[in-house]
């Protein structure tokens, strides 16, 4: 019980974020209307993704310092859950864009070409491609120690390259996406006080849920590893 308080917290916060997210009042903005509630899901996914990827890199660094195989498993599973969060971020973003950005006179796929050029989408695409590549790299090395070492090196290298690009690219291209200069939703003036009441708990809730899933996967992975080494 003492150890699982954060899991309960996650459930409570998410229940609040979902119920409050649908029922609490939001500011009425002409272009957005009620779609503004998607902020509670869409932006939270990206926050959770970045936090999980960062955790993954921290474990990769720890792995290279200690060469303890458990850290490698942790790095891998955090990256995997981060990737799922990223894909969900894309999905929620696509729904949102379909109602706000896409040209209603054309079929949705006809707008894809112009929407995909969004700098924020490019940044997100890079993050997701990097971690897809990370998993392909992992699968293409057969030796276990070598796999752990090589993938940890790539994880750190790619992550370090990713961050400058997330700052740089938005400043090079025009954008419709909110939060042109810097990180959307982190700025206090950006977001209405009523929405902050739901938004911050939602971020914490989704991140905790991601961590929870990752820890379950890590335990499963370690158990199956033990099973194979004993068999």
């Amino acid at each position: 019980m003492r150890k699982s308080w954060w899991k309960l917290l996650s459930v409570v916060l998410l229940a609040y974020a979902v119920i409050g997210g649908f029922l609490l009042p939001v500011p009425k903005i002409p272009q957005l209307q009620e779609t503004i509630r998607n902020l509670y899901y869409h932006v939270c996914m990206w926050f959770a993704m970045m936090i999980l990827f960062t955790t993954s890199v921290v474990y990769s660094i720890k792995y290279l310092r200690t060469l303890n195989a458990e850290y490698d498993i942790r790095a891998k599973e955090f990256a995997a859950v981060g990737l799922v969060m990223g894909l969900l971020g894309y999905a929620t973003g696509a729904i949102w864009a379909a109602y706000t950005w896409a040209d209603p006179n054309n079929p949705a796929y006809a707008s894809f070409g112009s929407i995909a050029r969004e700098p924020k989408l490019i940044g997100a695409a890079m993050a997701i491609l990097v971690y897809f590549a990370y998993f392909i790299l992992r699968d293409s090395v057969t030796d276990m120690d070598k796999r752990a070492r090589v993938s940890a090196v790539y994880n750190i290298f790619a992550y370090a390259m990713l961050f400058p690009s997330i700052w740089i690219v938005p400043r090079l291209l025009p954008s419709l996406h909110p939060g042109q200069e810097g990180n959307p939703a982190l700025n206090f003036n950006d977001i209405d006080a009523r929405m902050r009441m739901v938004f911050y708990p939602a971020v914490i809730g989704w991140t905790l849920l991601g961590v929870w899933i990752a820890t379950l996967r890590i335990r499963l992975h370690i158990l199956s590893e033990k099973k194979w080494s004993n068999a």
């Binding site: 490019i122 695409a125 890079m126 993050a127 491609l129 990097v130 897809f132 590549a133 392909i136 790299l137 790539y154 290298f157 790619a158 390259m161 990713l162 400058p164 690009s165 740089i168 690219v169």
Partner: peptide, 10 residues
């Protein structure tokens, strides 16, 4: 190529 493209894009 797979590893490089996302890293080189910026």
């Amino acid at each position: 190529a797979i590893l490089g493209f996302p890293v080189i894009m910026p």
